[in-house]
Design a protein around this nucleic acid. Structure first.
Lengths: 249, 249
DNA sequence: CGGTTCCTTGAGAGAACTCAACGTCGGTGG
DNA sequence: CCACCGACGTTGAGTTCTCTCAAGGAACCG
């Protein structure tokens, strides 16, 4: 999908009104830093499932995107047409961090559910190095976090370990505040992401339900035994030990 | 292994004499930027296999390391003692990019063969944001590259696809200049990294040898049919489309 | 030279996959 | 209003790729 950046279609975001709230990449920065970021953001726009991709693998990596609402998946498609989901991006997440050292996107991105994204031209991202060391550090930290997560998940685990880790991570990232979570993506997408067949994801969830670990109803899960999930997911090692790295002045 | 940073043991590196050469993180930067980097580097030191880890998972992430020579693996160990290799670091690579948003290392690191590393205190890395936008961008780009690689490899592929992609990548990274490459790590380590049993790695290499794709002799491989390897590795999608991102002034 | 580690090959086992069928849900149109 | 359709979720049966177990040979080291 070609991104229409004609002035009439532009809409500057107002971070104060953003549905992503404090989960945003900019969460907690000072007002003047937020202004720098706001200047870097070109516009925001809706993205819908089935309406074509936000961008496709091989496209020039001209922009970085920031999820305001919804869920975006990034994926590759091999020569046989097999889709391989690399990440799910939730509100506050940046899309395209894997392209910061490339001229072209290594993966495609499209909406999993109706979503909204901010658009940040990459030359403005590059300019942040000079304008805002704080935001540059944030960017580096986000990329490092994604790297850490990707390395954790790239290990060899059983279907149960994978699914348990996925549910815990999603619950954490979606931050519902209670023990329920609504998975925006299909079982097929979950399986694809976790390197499991759709049926295997179903079977594991059913098994966990029989064990009283959770209750599944359509796309909504209720976690009944979080400790057991943690126990299962332990080998994956998705520790959440993030710090806000202080900028040495 | 506790890192001995007593003055008597310190040895400032001389980038001009570095065996990593242009593959280094600093490759191609201007003389004054190189000086800033040199000031950030605390010392360099040897690391040997079987002599304990360079650092262990859970250690305070006080330093980042840069491989001068040899090969370092980073890995986790789960509760049952299973080692899971996350990355191999070759000359010029930074170690600890997955800890830039953490206070503690998520993984351990130890030498695969006799190696040398430069030690860079993390507070000096943080200070680069203010001192050297260029180096900060480099750091971001390296992290982004590692992210891209990790995401590629985290997909679901056959043993053959995995091994083919691994051989091609190592050949590329080791930059021998001919069609031969010496793998510094054991079959066991390769298998662990690729989520394959040692035996499976052996069998795949044997199969590729029978097909005339390569010749294997101990740790040395000779690539006979690079196109076939590329064909096999295609789904993994390890495109090497890196650019040197120009710093918008 | 023993001892150890690594590499290689074979045979059987198992976890996840594929294929297939069925129920549910939501949208569409006769 | 309801039959029809497609997408999704779930469950069962059989298959397959890789793993585990086992063992022999090669290389390295004290």
């Amino acid at each position: 999908m070609a991104f229409d950046s004609t002035p009439s279609n532009r809409c500057k975001p107002n971070c104060a009104m953003c549905p992503a709230g404090s989960r945003c990449f900019t969460g907690g920065v000072s007002a003047d830093q937020l202004n720098i970021w706001n200047d870097a953001v070109l516009t925001h726009m809706p993205v819908f499932p089935g309406n074509g991709a936000l961008f496709s693998a091989g496209d020039a990596a001209d922009n970085v995107y920031l999820v305001r609402a919804g869920c975006i998946k990034s994926f590759t498609v091999d020569q046989d047409g097999n889709e391989r989901i690399r990440s799910f991006h939730l509100p506050g997440d940046l899309i395209g961090l894997d392209a910061l050292a490339r001229s072209h996107h290594p993966s495609s991105a499209s909406a999993v559910e109706p979503s909204q994204v901010c658009v940040i031209p990459r030359d403005r991202i590059a300019a942040l190095a000079l304008q805002s060391p704080v935001l540059m550090q944030r960017l580096l930290q986000r990329t490092s976090r994604e790297l850490s997560t990707a390395l954790s998940l790239s290990g060899d685990y059983t279907a149960e370990q994978r699914v348990a880790a996925f549910i815990l991570t999603m619950h954490d990232r979606l931050a519902s505040g209670n023990d329920k979570l609504r998975l925006p993506m299909t079982r097929r997408d979950i399986g694809n992401y976790l390197r499991l067949a759709t049926e295997t994801v179903c079977r594991v969830i059913t098994r966990l339900e029989h064990q009283g670990v959770l209750v599944s109803r359509d796309k909504t899960l209720k976690i009944e035994n979080r400790d057991r999930l943690r126990e299962l997911a332990e080998p994956v090692g998705l520790v959440e030990d993030y710090e806000e790295l202080a900028l040495a002045a």
